[in-house]
Write a protein that binds this DNA or RNA. Sequence first.
DNA 1: TTTGAGACTTAGGTTAGCCTAACACCCTGT
DNA 2: ACAGGGTGTTAGGCTAACCTAAGTCTCAAA
Lengths: 229, 229
Amino acid sequence: MNAAIRSPQPPLTRSVEDYLKSVFHLTSQGGFATTSGIAEMLEIAPPSVSGMMKRLSETGLIEHVPYRGVQLTPQGRRAALQMIRRHRILEVYLTSKLGYDWGDVHVEAERLEHAVSEKLIERMADALGEPRYDPHGAPIPTAAGEIEEAELITLAAAPVGAAVVLRQVGDEDPARLRYLAEQGLTPGTRLTVVERQPFNGPTTVASGNGTRVVGQELAALLWCEEVAA
Amino acid sequence: MNAAIRSPQPPLTRSVEDYLKSVFHLTSQGGFATTSGIAEMLEIAPPSVSGMMKRLSETGLIEHVPYRGVQLTPQGRRAALQMIRRHRILEVYLTSKLGYDWGDVHVEAERLEHAVSEKLIERMADALGEPRYDPHGAPIPTAAGEIEEAELITLAAAPVGAAVVLRQVGDEDPARLRYLAEQGLTPGTRLTVVERQPFNGPTTVASGNGTRVVGQELAALLWCEEVAA
DNA sequence: TTTGAGACTTAGGTTAGCCTAACACCCTGT
DNA sequence: ACAGGGTGTTAGGCTAACCTAAGTCTCAAA
């Protein structure tokens, strides 16, 4: 006799879709998403989040432990992964087919992901040859709702002397992304960690075409896979 | 000291965009759009329309004469044409680049038009070679806000014996559109009006590959240009 | 000239989603 | 053991956009 059972599939609002995505991202390392974390990510006031958390747990999309935080239910996770799939497919499509810069796709996809149909996403995915990663290297969930989980370390944490492949850039800021592209720091690039200054200092890396010094802040956004030298 | 001057460009809501489009379509033959006409087109109750008309005339997008109807101001017309451009470019893109059937594009474009950026639309238009007509033959407004106005007659009104070219299909119903495509009745098709039964009866037309009988209801949706025999 | 059907508006109410202000809870440091 | 800062929630309000019910206006026909 609860709402989740009465209404089988009430379409989610844009707002709800955004909340679910936030919770997914904030809980990707395990644990709970906090009210303030969600509020910050969505740029809204914490009380608005509290209110929405109440509604979402009533509809069975999240599990809310008051004063502790929230987690996605299987149903909420499915919905979140669907949104992330849409977002990432759109990003690939915009860069591959419409000449978008990888710095500009995020904002555009953020609006489109709420408006596209399942059919359109699958047509795009098809036209792109079922891509597995978005332009920033993030894995694209399958239509069935599975997502690859890779063991990556940040460049800031990679040991000196290690050989790594840059796999994913954890940032959306257009200016930073443009800078990284200029520096040749795009997913797939093979790097060797040459040295690192102490006290959170910059990391020096070598690639096919020379060496670069990468500040700590940026290095912490570059997720790498360690490979054999 | 009014709202229209105070706020230079408050982005329009989805709802407002839909109202403006309705008013544009309902006034395309001149005159006023009525409250009930808008209500019917948007599938909402007339009082909701009255309320919105008040708000839109306060913001300077429409001219409202109480109990008479509404017309677009130049500013409202610009906004409406922009939405129509988006809608029609999207329709062309979906059919040309993503294999959509001309019966399925309307619904998809109806949602997307509120989410796409100007930039995306222009990239799509560019990729398509700046198309001038949508898949149903409707003219696409230019980015500057100009739209072609053609003198067309419906097939139901075309004189017997006339040679015509089908230019535009004034309908969005997927099933009807699929039927028309099966019958070869798509924009650009050249037809000769062979005969018409009296009392709003069907019209018989001849084309390159045979003759067809078209009922009055359908014929009234087929907009044609009369050409030299 | 009046009247009444139909179209339009006003009045009042609902829901989603946000806000600020005020209160409640939790946990860490003393 | 408890006090206080920080985080979370509750209370109360607002706007956009819808609704139904109850007037109000218009115009054409009697």
